[in-house]
Design a protein around this nucleic acid. Sequence first.
RNA 1: GUGAGCGUAGCUCAGUUGGCAGAGCCCCGGAUUGUGGAUCCGGCCGUCGCGGGUUCAAAUCCCGUCGCUCACCCCA
Length: 424
Amino acid sequence: MTHGISAIRGMNDILPEEVVYWQFIEQQLRALFASYGYIEIRPPLLERTEVFSRSIGVATDIVAKEMYTFSDRNGENLTLRPEGTAGCVRAVIEHHLAYKKACRFWMMGPMFRYERPQKGRYRQFYQVGVEALGLPGPDIDAELIFMSQRLWRQLGLSDDLVLQLNSLGDSATREKYREVLKNYFITHYDQLDEDSKKRLETNPLRILDSKNRELETLIQDAPKITQFLDETSRQNLKTLEALLTEARIRFVLNSRLVRGLDYYDGMVFEWETQLLGAQGAVCGGGRYNGLVECLGGESIPAVGFAIGMERLVEVLKAKQTMFPICPPDVYIVRVGERGGEEGLLLAEYLRDELPFLKVLSYMGEGGFKQQLRQADKSGARIALILGETEIASGKVSLKFLREEKPQQIFSKEEIKTILMSYFS
RNA sequence: GUGAGCGUAGCUCAGUUGGCAGAGCCCCGGAUUGUGGAUCCGGCCGUCGCGGGUUCAAAUCCCGUCGCUCACCCCA
């Protein structure tokens, strides 16, 4: 158990029992993206370190201490992606995908952050990302939120997720607000905790996000970014609010929602749940109008969001939505001298004739009783039996494992016809 | 990086004041030689996380260490 080799901390095996949840979600996602006209893009897991340090922000925890960074054999500085947007934007710039046109992408895959694991947070974790480039909003912003809302609906989670909404304004707004906020907290310096004192230098906005109850009133009384928003951001937010209201999507305006990555500006949002303990954000995103230019492209407005797959799976599990592992349709039991060969050939014949059929064959030297027990445990509805008698006559016995019907012997062709009627 | 809780069979967990390491599930066999499930009977399964200390004697007490979990920080 604790001896021998084990997976490294924070990097989990997703076992068959859980994979069914992932497959269900992925299936829903693909259909959802298709219905909105988004197309898949697959950037590599590894990028030059600067792709992330320039976009996410050197002062953020992600870049400062959470990246898996190393030199490859050429001495090049590489990093396992800690998030998806930066690599996507790099690809878009490199291949001129957004040249004078809008484009909308989705992507799915593992991200890596060197953090202490806890519930809903791991060192290798999976995100589904959606990015829309070349569109200033707020119409596209609304579309993204509609899309996420539709997913919750399809997964049966509408009542478990709350939408939080805010705007960070343009870069000038943020700069100004940052100063105001800093001054405010400096005048109350003695009330701040250690973490917040540090944040005063690195990112004062982050103090607003503190979970420390003792700071509650101090933060409550802090100046709100809403009061400083530039005209465009203010208008966009208002329009978005109206669109959401018309679409009957409930939201909470949260002026304390700041988000951790530096590239966010303008509208930001987060879908939160109470079902996951401390890591309640299942989906988060917002505008990043400055990022494309920052990474060396033209100035192109953009917006996107990411869903934490593990967290989504956890929510589904918490709701006790069950997804049984899909059992085989038929299980082949065979004994006797020629049983093994005949069984394998029968299975192949059935797969040729009935491609939709799920066939599991017993392997090895087990006795008849043992094989039938395995057939039962597999969950198969029907056992096909090849024994001495059957093989001698070139036929197959069909036994129902879940219903009261007599066992009968048939030719292979008859078996095919019967299975077709049951499973097609 | 910081804090708390927990490490006993493949899984879920008991284990009293320090006194032979247990149960249920799973798996295997039998009752039933080619008929599964229900029942009954039997069997297999241990570095008590690891290392040291105290003791006649440690799963149990002490110290250290590793791992897991949750939380802080931060984020999806």
